[in-house]
């Protein structure tokens, strides 16, 4: 990624199995902002990682069927995930954990086994409404047999949390990106934060891509071409339709959404992948600006997302 045109400064490091980026408008505040981001990521990983046997969520699974005390962070992260499920009518559902594991995403992505037979065809998610969170008392009741996967929202929640905390503490504008899920807070650059939107967050800055500016809130991209592997000889990606337990339909390669927060952007982009062909209308009625790239590369923009500026890019717009 080329150096930004403003007087900002950035730090990049590996975290949560992806790339973490923090950008500040005051270069001398970079170290503090990076420290805050690292603290938030360490805490989120320890609370929410289903790949760590010592994580709080692994302990919760071990105590399924009984009310268990939980940290403020896990309580909040689970409440955020349940809210995402409620506002999408279950298109994004944290109880999809067993299905995601059955498809083979049962360890840190770098260690996922490339291809073996699919042992058992996953079924529908048990349902987010079966999980009880008491936010005031910080207690969680996870029914037996329900496995949580907070992957869809916990990372975005961490981006919102870190950007907000760093902006408050440093007093400058802060952008946090976790694997391409972007949150901004504080007073940003005068012309907005410039974000390159592409199929792959690692190369979007180098490849021909949409270049947009955002002023506040969040921007997230969900993809069926990143984090892919094979099961039973069939290509598999990490987004499961909670209603069936099957892979989300191969309609969109990537969906990028802008919203009031990174969590809301990520919730909508994940829901759009699951919805498939119905996604543009679903996004438009919610006034969520979005850029959807079909599996054949055609670009659809929705609800005020700028028309594709790539040379040769062809656009099919959907009115808000």
């Amino acid at each position: 990624v080329k150096a930004p045109s403003t007087g900002s400064a950035r730090a990049t490091f590996a975290a949560l199995g992806t790339t973490a980026v923090v950008v500040v408008t005051e270069p001398r505040r970079l170290d503090r902002a990076e420290q805050i981001l690292r603290e938030v990521l360490d805490a989120i990983d320890l609370a929410c990682s289903r790949f760590r046997s010592d994580s709080e969520i692994s302990g919760l699974h071990a105590h399924a069927g009984r009310t268990a005390p939980a940290s403020a962070l896990l309580t909040d992260a689970l409440a955020v995930a349940l809210r995402a499920a409620a506002v999408t009518d279950g298109l994004v559902d944290p109880t999809v954990g067993a299905a995601v594991r059955a498809w083979g995403y049962d360890r840190d992505f770098a260690s996922v086994v490339p291809d073996v037979a699919l042992v058992e065809r996953p079924g529908p998610a048990p349902g987010w409404w079966r999980v009880t969170v008491d936010e005031r008392r910080r207690e969680i009741l996870l029914p037996r047999g329900v496995h949580l996967d907070l992957g869809a929202t916990a990372k975005a929640y961490a981006a919102d949390l870190a950007a907000g905390r760093a902006a408050r503490e440093t007093g400058c504008g802060v952008l946090v990106s976790l694997g391409g899920d972007v949150a901004v807070a504080g007073r940003g650059p005068a012309d907005g934060w410039r974000v390159a939107v592409g199929d792959d967050h690692a190369t979007a800055g180098d490849q021909p891509a949409d270049l947009v500016t955002v002023q506040s809130g969040g921007l997230a991209t969900s993809s069926t071409t990143r984090r892919t592997w094979r099961r039973g000889g069939r290509p598999v990606h990490h987004i499961v339709d909670p209603r069936t337990g099957d892979q989300a339909p191969p309609v969109w390669r990537t969906v990028s959404v802008a919203a009031g927060s990174c969590v809301d952007a990520n919730t909508a982009s994940t829901a759009a992948i699951v919805l498939g062909a119905a996604a543009p209308d679903w996004l438009a009625v919610r006034r969520l600006p979005a850029r959807l790239v079909s599996t054949d590369g055609g670009v659809t923009t929705v609800a005020g997302w700028p028309a594709d500026t790539r040379p040769g890019g062809h656009v099919q717009g959907v009115a808000a």
């Binding site: 391409g180 410039r194 967050h201 700028p306």
Partner: peptide, 30 residues
């Protein structure tokens, strides 16, 4: 349609086109 505090919050402003080169961050598949 869920909106407001109980729904998915739209952005205060839609993304605007940016021209030229250089970006603060990238948003791609993850």
């Amino acid at each position: 349609v869920p909106q407001g505090s109980s729904g998915i919050q739209p952005p205060a402003q839609a993304p605007a086109p940016a021209f030229g080169s250089g970006s603060h961050a990238s948003s791609g598949g993850s």
